[in-house]
Design a protein around this nucleic acid. Sequence first.
DNA 1: AATAAATAGGATAATTAATATCTTATTAAG
DNA 2: CTTAATAAGATATTAATTATCCTATTTATT
Lengths: 152, 152
Amino acid sequence: MDRFKDVLKASNLKSTHQRLAILDCIDMFGHIDVDTLYEAILRKYPTMSKATLYRNINDLISFHILEEVKLPNQKQQYEIKKVPHIHLLCTHCGCVEDVFVETKTLLDAVKDKSGFTISNSFIVMNGTCELCSSQVISNNTQNTCSLEMQTL
Amino acid sequence: MDRFKDVLKASNLKSTHQRLAILDCIDMFGHIDVDTLYEAILRKYPTMSKATLYRNINDLISFHILEEVKLPNQKQQYEIKKVPHIHLLCTHCGCVEDVFVETKTLLDAVKDKSGFTISNSFIVMNGTCELCSSQVISNNTQNTCSLEMQTL
DNA sequence: AATAAATAGGATAATTAATATCTTATTAAG
DNA sequence: CTTAATAAGATATTAATTATCCTATTTATT
């Protein structure tokens, strides 16, 4: 069940309920900002302090367990660190999708042109997701592609 | 001299000294965060209020004259809006370079795989710039590739 | 299981960042 | 030069983030 226990242990971090809740919740949402995360966690742990949330997010990032996701015109979001991938932000419904596509060709081109040694890339694309495209979206209708959290 | 006067006029925005200073300064630095920008502008306009800076940054963004630049592990930066390009962040000296490389192939691949209609892409790469690569950088030595502002 | 050391959590205060409000000043058009 | 529109500055307010300090929990060891 608690695969994140092992992840924490590997970094010599204690498996507190709060940390596991944070990780499970982020994992479930895929991508989430601090406030939404806090709200969601409060339902399960009404006593969790916001300081604890901020502290843990920062700690988990410094141990490379979490990763920040910076999206244009959006609050900072976080995700479980995984293999490199591209983020797609639907500007209609706000959902964020991951897509795994080969980027080596682009990185090589950039390297050649700039002289930079590239170690990492962060790619975000704006657009319209398949669901939103398939519907005629009225001005005040919004899809909600993002998961609701069922159980923590 | 003041090419930004025309830019402002085109959006029916008044050419105040403050706005021109903000635009000139961002243009000179290329990429800059709010605090550095404020500091730099204070040298020329010691009376400029921070509220004015924030207000103008937001206004200029909404008129697509400025654009936010989100870099990993960095404070939010801003640049003059230009044609789409890739940002390279040197993790040694902190400098940010623009590089103009064809991305259509990647966008098409992402589109095919995801079903998203892509309207915009934001690409940042981390790495080591040419100057830093060419030097043996000791732990506490940092290049300063970023411009110092000479005249505003 | 009980104990103890290390570490993390919670509450709160403090700091920092960003925005809103209101009055005065500046811009730009006539 | 005058005037209407808009922007600036000062300040207050709100929001976001971090620091501090004391208590609680975890985990290794007996």
